[in-house]
Design a protein around this nucleic acid. Structure first.
Length: 621
DNA sequence: CTAGGGTTAG
């Protein structure tokens, strides 16, 4: 009786462990100890472990991280003569690989008398996990040469390694092998091909695989959606997501978390709200990842209070939940609340990572809390460029240019574009100080030098010349951009109205209500004039024609705002999204409008949410 | 009766 029952128990416990424990290093010792003690009993009563018991007890050792016990079992296996059993060997390879590294596994593998695709694959996977895709691919090629069976799992693993290496060439090669084996259309292989092409940055190849798949599962759809969203193809992603539902594949938490970032980044806020409804209807509104993604979506859509409601109602919060909320408040001009949250987070016991520090430094920056910023920066053991750039932004934003430049020199980060842009922002804020004008220009020139093909840098330079009324140079910059064949981004603004997104470009007259939109803006301008609000005094020197260009009447964000004013009911908040940063004229005009029509206006640009209310803006200018 | 695999949020 005993051998069979013990044996079953060991087996069951191992199986249970495997399901429960995702991280093999996490010791969930209860079950494991049970398995081990049963195994010991077995030995005590003189039951010889066999080729079925040994792999399982080795797996239990691996999952519980009991390396020394595992090594004892290894010794027993050798004594009992199981050193050439496939199942024992692979269990050993995996145990050594996970607990002592891939090299230890390789040593065992090289010694093992017979290899099969499982042991090859195992070793390749270990290399992948150690971020050594090159070695994994080499191993796969050796396996192919050795004449071993190439099966689904071996292919999927090798293809995954190509993706990790971001080598399209290796990936195509593996694809070719899959084709030869007739396994190309297996759903596992196809899914790994999809992911590999996406990782290599080729959505076209990924799409080709996807379109040819005889049957697609939720993983295929999710991978594709995520691929598009990551590349900024939000509408493509949304289209695919809808199609997935049409084809009867239920969106699961993973699919939802992949599509929500797209909802967060388009002006069509109805998408995100619809998905929220779907979550509630399907009872998946408790999943942590989903809630985090949902919070982020609301933050980025301009509904910070919804995000806060979700956050405060959450049972468990992880590092991402906190980070989203801290960043959210900062994005919204409430950095001090972000810093407050960070302090609460420190008490909550959730582990704080590098990105949380990015968030809290950003919070300090938007709240102009220099002292706190310095303190949190010093908490970092190995600050990344992103942290340094925020420190520069914080210092320069507070007018501490000497400290900012000294900091840059000390950290040797003068040649990073994001750092230079942070410094430039500071110069812009403090442009009234005489010397910052020339510093600003020098920084822009450094940027042009660093990224000669980035048209935005020349636009910055051109704007600088315009600001200083050097019109011949403005024209020269325009020629330079044209001669280099560069195309600066065009400005667009979006506003959602009655489930439809309306797009405006600069000086756009294509909207059906265009006349009314301009008429509204003109009458508001007139009122602004009467109230003595002038666009900006330093433009008074400009020639009349140029000055007209500077009047924000044709700017896309104003067109969108005006459309919002004439379409929505009185008092409703207006939400506009813009792809470029708002210009300072539109900024002051928007402040004025918010006051005179008694409406709140939210203009989201790539870096910030400008919340205009009663004549002032959340960014504090 | 056993072993290796493809998807998510800041």
């Amino acid at each position: 009786m005993l051998p069979i029952s013990s044996f079953r128990l060991v087996k069951k416990l191992c199986a249970a462990q495997k399901h429960k424990i995702k991280e093999p290093t996490h010791l969930s010792s209860g079950d494991f100890n049970h398995a081990v003690s049963t195994y010991r009993q077995m030995l005590l009563r003189g039951v010889r472990p066999d080729r079925h018991t040994l792999p399982r007890i080795l797996t239990a050792s691996r999952l519980s991280g009991s390396f020394s016990f595992g090594k004892q079992v290894h010794g027993q296996a050798l004594k009992l003569g199981f050193s050439s059993d496939h199942y024992v060997t692979t269990a050993l390879i995996e145990m050594y690989g996970r607990l002592d590294g891939a090299d230890a596994a390789k040593w065992l593998f090289d010694k093992s008398p017979r290899r099969n695709s499982v042991s090859w694959t195992l070793l390749a996977k270990l290399y992948v996990m150690e971020d050594k895709p090159r070695l994994a691919i080499d191993l796969f090629n050796q396996m192919v040469d050795s004449g071993a069976d190439i099966d689904l799992v071996a292919l999927a693993t090798a293809i995954g390694a190509c993706g990790l290496l971001k080598s399209l060439q290796e990936g195509r090669n593996a694809h070719q092998i899959a084709r030869k084996c007739g396994l190309e259309f297996d759903v596992l292989v196809s899914n790994s091909l999809l992911k590999m092409y996406i990782d290599c940055g080729s959505m076209r190849d990924a799409r080709a695989v996807f379109d040819q798949m005889p049957s697609k599962d939720a993983i295929s759809w999710t991978a594709m959606v995520r691929g598009y969203v990551r590349k900024g193809g939000f509408n493509e992603g949304l289209k695919l997501f809808r199609q997935m539902n049409v084809e009867g594949i239920k969106a699961d938490p993973l699919a939802i978390s992949s599509i929500l970032p797209a909802c967060a980044r388009t002006a069509a806020h109805k998408n995100g709200k619809e998905i929220h409804g779907y979550l509630i209807r399907n009872g998946i509104d408790k999943n942590l990842t989903v809630l985090n993604a949902l919070m982020d979506m609301y933050v980025k859509s301009g509904y910070i209070e919804y995000a806060w409601n979700i956050f405060s109602g959450m049972k468990d919060r992880d590092v991402i939940s906190w980070t989203v909320m801290i960043l959210g408040y900062s994005f919204y001009g409430r950095g001090e609340l972000g810093v407050g949250l960070f302090r609460e987070m420190e008490k909550s016991g959730v582990e704080i990572d590098q990105i949380t520090y990015v968030a809290v430094l950003y919070a300090c920056y938007t709240a102009r809390m220099v002292e706190d910023g310095r303190f949190y920066f010093n908490c970092l053991e190995a600050p990344k460029v992103a942290h340094c750039a925020l420190m520069v932004a914080l210092l320069a934003g507070a007018g501490l240019f000497d400290e900012a430049t000294a900091f840059m020199e000390k950290r040797k980060i003068e040649r990073h574009a994001e750092v230079l842009r942070a410094l430039l922002d500071g110069c812009r804020i403090h442009q009234h100080q005489q010397q910052n004008g020339s510093t600003g220009k020098r920084v822009i020139e450094q940027l042009c030098d660093l990224e000669p093909l980035n048209a935005e840098n020349y636009v910055l330079l051109s704007n600088w010349y315009a600001h200083h009324a050097k019109w011949d140079m403005v024209n020269r910059m325009r020629e330079t951009i044209r001669d280099m064949g560069l195309r600066p981004k065009k400005a667009y603004s979006w506003i959602e109205f009655r489930n439809k997104v309306h797009v405006f470009g600069t000086g756009d007259v294509s909207h059906p209500r265009s006349r009314r939109i301009y008429w509204e803006l003109e009458s508001l301008m007139k009122k602004a004039d009467e109230e003595g609000m002038r666009p900006n005094s330093d433009y008074s020197l400009h020639e009349v024609e140029e000055e007209r260009e500077c009047i924000p009447i044709g700017h896309s964000e104003m067109l969108a705002t005006s459309f919002g004013l004439i379409s929505t009911e009185r008092g409703a908040t207006i939400r506009v999204t813009k792809n470029l940063r708002i210009c300072c004229h539109c900024h002051s005009f928007a402040k004025f409008i918010s006051k005179i029509v008694g409406r709140q206006i939210l203009i989201k640009d790539p870096t910030y949410f400008h919340h205009f209310k009663d004549g002032s803006c959340s960014c504090g200018d």
